[in-house]
């Protein structure tokens, strides 16, 4: 992206709450959360070649931990947020240790199973999670005394967090560690032969990805002020994976675009179409046919071809 385009993008993002209505501001906030969440999954799917179908675990764990600490122990947000992140990251470490005994399909099934365990726990352990009724009565934090209850305030908050998070993840990808990660995806045996600890590279990525998933979880629970077991469900994991694949796994912009498309179809287009699920399906079929590697790589390829002719 050229410098000029970047400046325009930043200006549009900053100015958007001044021109958009409340509904669109809130829609944008949700897109940021989804984009951050998809980007964290992309570390595994796109750069590590590890397709996880259990990524919703991190959003749910972080959200439930922070909500429970707030409701049951009465802790303030500045304590609950780091505790939720630490807890989720530790569990990501454990889950990664289990799941990375396999790769490919085995990895996918184990992540699915582990996240389903959490989903079942959230449903059944009613004493802690309030079961099917979910945890309500939550509030948004007020960093530096600024209330985030208004749509615009929350918009800037989630925008800031998302930009920092995406930048941090891009740093990882572009570092020597990121090169090792891509190497472990493409030529894992050769990487081992070169002396890299492939398992450790993958495990660290898994944990890092879980951490940023947890950050998305905090934003999610702050936005909704409510958490229900569906946040941990397979649908939720599948939706974010769909976003990553549609947008273009293994690119920084891809998951952001993909997550935005899924969210806009789900929350905006559904107002005009009863059968919006069908449209969602049709859009993905079109993407798969015309841009099998995702929208962002697809557009890049097309524009390169245009430049040539």
């Amino acid at each position: 992206m050229s410098a000029a385009a970047r400046i325009v993008l930043v200006l549009v993002l900053v100015a958007f709450p001044l021109i958009g209505g409340d509904f669109y501001i809130n829609l944008a906030s949700q897109i940021f959360i989804a984009a951050l969440f998809a980007t964290s999954l992309n570390l595994l799917v796109g750069y590590g070649g590890l397709v996880s179908l259990g990524h919703a675990a991190w959003i749910g764990l972080a959200a439930y931990t922070s909500a429970w600490l707030y409701l049951h122990l009465g802790l303030r947000h500045w304590i609950t947020a780091p505790l939720a992140l630490v807890n989720t990251t530790l569990i990501a470490g454990l889950f990664g240790w289990i799941a990375l005994r396999a790769t490919g399909l085995g990895f996918l099934m184990i992540t699915l199973a582990l996240s389903q365990v959490l989903w079942g726990t959230a449903y059944r352990w009613a004493a802690v999670t309030n079961g099917d009724n979910g945890l309500s009565g939550l509030t948004r934090p007020a960093p530096f005394g600024i209330s985030l209850d208004g749509p615009a305030a929350f918009y800037y908050f989630s925008l800031t967090v998302t930009i920092v998070a995406v930048w941090m993840m891009a740093r990882l990808v572009n570092s020597p560690f990121g090169a090792a990660l891509r190497g472990s995806r493409d030529e894992s045996r050769r990487m081992s032969a070169l002396g890299h600890n492939v398992w450790l590279v993958r495990w660290l990525t898994f944990v890092y990805s879980g951490f940023w998933g947890a950050v998305a979880g905090l934003l999610f629970v702050y936005y909704h002020k409510y958490i229900h077991p569906t946040a941990l469900s397979l649908t939720s994991s599948a939706e974010v994976l769909l976003g990553v694949i549609a947008g273009g796994a293994g690119t920084i912009a891809g998951p952001i675009v993909g997550a935005a498309i899924v969210l806009i179809l789900k929350n905006y287009v559904s107002a005009y179409l009863d059968r919006w699920n069908m449209l969602l399906g049709a859009v993905f079929v079109v993407i798969v046919i015309f841009m099998p590697d995702g929208i962002v790589p697809g557009i890049r390829r097309w524009s390169a071809r245009l430049r040539k002719t």
Binding site: D22, F23, N26
Partner: peptide
């Protein structure tokens, strides 16, 4: 009319749409 698909987070998003738009 708003369709929540029976998903809580979706219901909240739809309600926001009904109210704000």
């Amino acid at each position: 009319v708003g369709d929540s698909a029976g998903v809580p987070a979706q219901a909240r998003a739809k309600l926001q749409e009904l109210v704000e738009r």
